[in-house]
Design a protein around this nucleic acid. Sequence first.
DNA 1: TTTCTAACA
DNA 2: TGTTAGAA
Length: 358
Amino acid sequence: MRSVQIKEIANKLQVSTRAIRWYEQKGLIKPHKEEGNGYRYFTESEAWRLQTIISLREIGMPIPEIQKVLAEIDAGDDQDVLYYLELQRSAMFSQWIELQSMIKTLDGMIGMAKEKKELVWEDIHQLVDSAKGFRELRKNWSDRWGFDRQAAQYDEAVLREPEFNPHQNYNEALDLTCQLVDAQTGERGLDIGTGTGNLAGRFLAKGIEVAGIDQSREMLRQCMAKHPQMETKLGNFLAIPYLDEQFDFVITSYALHHLTDEQKLLALEEMQRVLKPGGRICIADLMFESNEKREAVRERFLAAGRADVWAAIEDEYYADRSLLLAWFAENGYRAEAKQVNDYLHILYAQREPESNNA
DNA sequence: TTTCTAACA
DNA sequence: TGTTAGAA
């Protein structure tokens, strides 16, 4: 096998020799070293490996991630490589949204400066602080629920439907969601937290195009198995991996309750961002009509001796329906709410086309 | 001339 | 990662 020295390969691949040595130091490659002088010699296959590293670097993937990708390639699992590419895509989108929010903050600062003719640092610090808080919220998102492990049994668990099961009326809720959105041929929707694609599947069956995102690659695997024609991407509520105004409608089922109330509002903004003017949002999720109703339901659970189930509910963040409706009202939506059962509601909102996308 | 390591930017 | 120094 013909092998070349570092300068030649560096020239061919358009990288510095330093970079190549650096990748070696990080354990990404291990070229053969000549006994006497310690010169590195690179073979064809190492050239290909380096090319891969460089490509991944170009899309901004950090070295440790590249390391994992290379391991997957070595193991011959292309599917897992795809996962890392999608993960990277989702990371880039997060950064893009970060930048957007920083620009927004900066605009605020500029606006203040213009208005008052001089910089009022207290105001600016306050503005930056709140922006920082929001950024923390986004960062704190993670797959806390072990969906990767649950994915295989998720459908089964959902369909068992005993009494006092939060998944009671699951299928009715999804059917109703599909009905409310009333998607027309040619429209395109996004299902957030699509899981195994149960909700999206109802639209697909009607010939409506729906893309799905989920933060669990295992869930997406199950989804792809059930709906091979469906477009799926890794992503989450707080950083939807799509550009602005891409969808006629955004749907989500049994997912929003994983977010805190503050995060829910950020999620609504994200949904709005990818929604076309006049688009629709439909949320089917576990929530309560109000805090009073929540109390009433709690008492019923306790009276029935199901404190265990209630404890599980308290582990999540079932919404106060009125908070979500208030957000819709403030942002120019005509919204309606349907109650399926005590803690399962469906919110359907259509945005007035003239509402400006701020 | 080329490459190497190591330290510093 | 770029740069640079000193050595093989």
